[in-house]
C-alpha cells in the first residue's frame, strides 16, 4: 500500500521537497510559490468534481454503440461536428479534456474526431470566447478564432496521418486500460 503510493507519487513528493529546500534558501520564492500552488489547487478542486462526475455518468450511461455511431469511424461530417461542438461547449482547462478524450476513445470514437474535440476544447470554448472578446476586442477574437478553427483541422489531419496503424491501436489500448 505505502510502497504503491510512493511509486505513484514520488515525483510529486520530490517536487515538494525541492520546493521546501528552495523556500529555505530563498524564503520569498518559497512563500510565493506555495501561495500560487495553494490558489491553483483551490481553483482546480472547484472545477474538477463536476467534470469527473459527468465523465463517470457518460462512461456508465452512453454505450459504445451509440458513441461509435455518432463519432466513430465513418460518422462523417456529422461526427466531426458533434466532436467540435462537444469541445466548444466544454469548460475547464485543457488537461481536463484528456480523460474525457480517453472515455470517447474507449467508447469507439475515431481518433480524428477526438483530436477535433481536443482542438475545440483548447481554442473555441464558448464561455472563454466572450471573455476574450471583452479583454482583447472583437476583431482580435474573431481573427484568432477563424485561424484556430483552420488550425484545429490541420493539426487533427496531420496527427492522424502521421500515426501508424500500430500507434493508433496502442492509443485505443491505453484508453481501455485507463478506466480499469
Amino acid at each position: 500500500m505505502i510502497k504503491n503510493f510512493l511509486k505513484r507519487y514520488w515525483i510529486f513528493l520530490l517536487l515538494v521537497v525541492i520546493n521546501v529546500v528552495l523556500g529555505f534558501i530563498f524564503p520569498e520564492i518559497g512563500v510565493k510559490s506555495l501561495d500560487i500552488t495553494k490558489r491553483n489547487v483551490i481553483e482546480m478542486m472547484l472545477v474538477i468534481p463536476p467534470i469527473f462526475v459527468l465523465l463517470g455518468l457518460l462512461d456508465v450511461w452512453v454505450d459504445r454503440a451509440v458513441m461509435m455511431k455518432y463519432t466513430g469511424k465513418g460518422s462523417g461530417f456529422k461526427g466531426i461536428l458533434i466532436a467540435f461542438l462537444l469541445g466548444s461547449a466544454a469548460a475547464g482547462p485543457l488537461y481536463a479534456a484528456f480523460p474525457v478524450a480517453g472515455v470517447m476513445l474507449k467508447k469507439g470514437s475515431s481518433l480524428f474526431n477526438v483530436f477535433i474535440f481536443i482542438g475545440a476544447w483548447s481554442t473555441t470554448k464558448i464561455p472563454m470566447l466572450t471573455f476574450e472578446a471583452a479583454s482583447l476586442g472583437l476583431p482580435f477574437t474573431l481573427i484568432r478564432l477563424g485561424l484556430s478553427i483552420i488550425g484545429i483541422f490541420i493539426i487533427a489531419i496531420f496527427t492522424d496521418k502521421v500515426l501508424s496503424k500500430e500507434d493508433k491501436e496502442h492509443i485505443y489500448e491505453l484508453s481501455d486500460k485507463e478506466s480499469k
Binding site: 515525483i11 510529486f12 517536487l15 520564492i29 510559490s33 500560487i36 500552488t37
Partner: peptide
Amino acid sequence: SILVIIGI
C-alpha cells in the same frame, strides 16, 4: 506535480 511546478 504539475501544480507544484507551476507554483515554482
